[in-house]
């Protein structure tokens, strides 16, 4: 447990530090995630030594974002004033993302990379 937490928090702290020192406008947590993947890939960290905690963290993500979600009660007035652009932009954009991603993936796959794809 202590070792698992050490690895996760060390990656997070290092990610924050890298983002801060190089002034990268990317969340430190994302850099920490890529750092962890790199460490696993280079066998610096054994997957067994982070498996437990990462399963716990990933499967409970939904719960962790309840409190920031509750904060929406502070913005009800802004949202009700601008609900139309919010809803319209969101709905249309979901459909666009779905179709663009799926269509491009299908297209690229069917052209050059078919032989690599196992069904």
């Amino acid at each position: 447990m202590v070792k698992q937490c050490s690895i996760i928090f060390a990656c997070l702290a290092a990610g924050e530090f890298i983002a801060w020192i190089f002034k990268i406008p990317i969340p430190g947590s994302i850099i920490g995630m890529l750092l962890l993947t790199t460490l696993l890939q280079n066998k610096v960290v054994n997957i067994e030594s982070v498996k437990g905690i990462s399963q716990f963290l990933v499967s409970n993500m939904g719960f962790f974002f309840v409190p920031p979600g509750v904060a929406i009660m502070l913005y009800f007035d802004i949202i009700s004033a601008q609900w139309f652009p919010i809803v319209t932009a969101t709905l249309l954009s979901i459909a666009i993302v779905l179709i663009v991603t799926g269509w491009v993936h299908q297209f690229v796959n069917s052209r050059k990379f078919k032989f690599r794809f196992k069904h």
């Binding site: 996760i8 928090f9 990656c11 997070l12 990610g15 969340p27 430190g28 947590s29 994302i30 920490g32 995630m33 890529l34 750092l35 962890l36 993947t37 696993l40 890939q41 997957i47 982070v50 498996k51 905690i53 990462s54 399963q55 963290l57 990933v58 409970n60 993500m61 962790f64 974002f65 409190p67 920031p68």
Partner: peptide
């Protein structure tokens, strides 16, 4: 909420 950020780091495992 504090645990959200370590949880992002933990996504490194499925990515790997």
């Amino acid at each position: 909420e504090f645990w959200l950020r370590p949880a992002i780091v933990a996504l490194g495992v499925p990515l790997y």
